[in-house]
Structures are given as C-alpha cells and as structure tokens.
C-alpha cells in the first residue's frame, strides 16, 4: 500500500493502481469518458486530467487513468486550472456531438453553454474514444471494428467501412462499452441489429429449443463453440433453461 492524498484526504491505495482508480475507490469523482476497467487504459478523452505534486516536489498535470499512485503523491482533482481545461474539452465535445444526451448532461453539470464553436454534423454521437474497438479486440478477441484514417477524418468503422462485415459476431459488447450511446443494439423478431456511427449489421438469432426465446446471434454461438472447442449442439438451449 502507498499513502497519497487526494484533495487533502489521506488515502491508502494498493501499489500499481491508477490515480483514477484510487479516487473512485474513495468516492472521489473524476470525470472520464474513455476509461473502461475491462480494457487497458488509453488516455484519449483527457477529461480525467488532475494536478499532482510528487514526493520530490515535482508539480504537473497528469492523466489520472494512466498515472499510477506512488508514495507521498498529492493529487488535486478540481483546481481552477483543471476546471478551465475540462470546460474547454466539454465545449469541444459538445461541438463534435451536439446531439448526445450524455455530452449535453455533462455540459450542463460543468456550466458549459457552447455556441462559440461551429457544431458538426454526421459524427452520430461518436467521440472516438475507441472503447468499442478496444473491447472488441481485448475482451472479445475479434477485432471486428477499428478506428480508421487519422486526425479530423478519423472514424470508427468496420474494415472498408462496409455494412455486414465478415468479422463481427454480433455479441454487442461494443454497444455496452460505448459511453455516449453512439452504438445501439436492437433484438427484434429473431434478428439483432447493431448500428455503429457509420455502419450497421444484422444477425440471425438462435432460438432456445426449450423456451423458444431468441437468445444469441447464431454467429456468436458458432464463434464461442469454435474457440472453446465444444460442439455447436451444446448451445441449443439458452443459459436460463440450462440452469
């Protein structure tokens, strides 16, 4: 354990955890959009910046989702400088995704009204945090979607920007991991539809042979059977009926 202080509070944090993690464990709120504990830290949204002073006296701004706690660290999460940065970041987000409820709510909380920057259209609520792509790669192991192009042209897409791409198994993890609701998933009449900011896919669902519910995309079931080396017939019954 290492001793640190956050906003004047003395805290014991396990070695190796990030400042953000330590703050969360102690109910200290640091805003973030791209952080997701299921995947490796990325540091793209910059909202979780905090001011630190090391035991040696070095002061600077760091990304709390990446910076690890260390003995004698002093952290300030909400100084005037931090507030100024966050406000501008939120203003930039609001111009990028004016139609996102999550961003609008965040702007409200931080007193950002917007209007100074020209709002964009066509980003469809996507802030390019890559939570979806990182989850698909690191958790699911499929890498069906990725960030393509670079800079201001960057987009979250399937390979070649095609609808109904080969690789996606339809698990929907991307939609669960999306912080702004840019990826949606809808199961209806035996079909699952996943909508990304620029592409969409439809999947046939598997019907449980006991209860008759559509419980998972056929493609996902096949993928799980293949990777776990079990026969596809093992998955004829849904998890609920199996219990």
């Amino acid at each position: 354990m290492v001793k640190i202080t956050i906003n004047g509070r003395n805290i014991n944090a396990p070695e190796g955890v990030t400042v953000l993690h330590a703050a969360r464990e102690n109910n200290i709120n640091i805003p973030t959009l791209c952080e997701n504990e299921a995947v490796a830290p990325y540091g793209a949204c910059r909202l979780c910046l905090v001011e630190i002073k090391t035991a040696k006296g070095r002061q600077r701004l760091v990304t709390s989702c990446l910076y690890q706690v260390e003995e004698g660290l002093t952290v300030q999460t909400n100084t005037e400088r931090i507030q100024k940065i966050r406000k501008m970041l939120i203003e930039l987000l609001l111009a990028r995704c004016p139609d996102s409820d999550v961003i609008q709510q965040m702007a409200k909380e931080h007193g950002v009204t917007g209007g100074r920057l020209t709002p964009q259209t066509g980003n469809n609520k996507c802030i390019l945090c890559a939570n979806c792509a990182r989850t698909c790669e690191e958790v699911v192991g499929v890498s069906a979607i990725s960030l393509s192009k670079r800079g201001v042209e960057r987009e979250l897409t399937t390979p070649f920007g095609e609808d109904n791409s080969d690789d996606c198994i339809g698990c929907g993890s991307c939609s669960y991991s999306c912080p702004t609701g840019a990826i949606t998933m809808e199961d209806k009449n035996g079909t699952r539809k996943i909508t990304w900011p620029h592409n969409e896919m439809k999947f046939k669902m598997k019907k449980c042979s006991v209860c008759g519910q559509f419980w998972a995309p056929v493609k996902q079931v096949e993928y799980v059977a293949k990777t776990s080396g079990t026969p596809v017939t093992d998955y004829d019954i849904c998890p609920n009926c199996r219990e």
């Binding site: 890498s143 393509s148 670079r150 390979p159 070649f160 690789d167």
Partner: peptide
C-alpha cells in the same frame, strides 16, 4: 493480423 488492423494502418 485482423483485417481491421490492416485497414487502420492502410488508412492511417
């Protein structure tokens, strides 16, 4: 290497 990675690199 996943196609998505190749596509990312080729467009980056």
């Amino acid at each position: 290497v996943p196609v998505s990675r190749v596509y990312s690199v080729a467009t980056f």
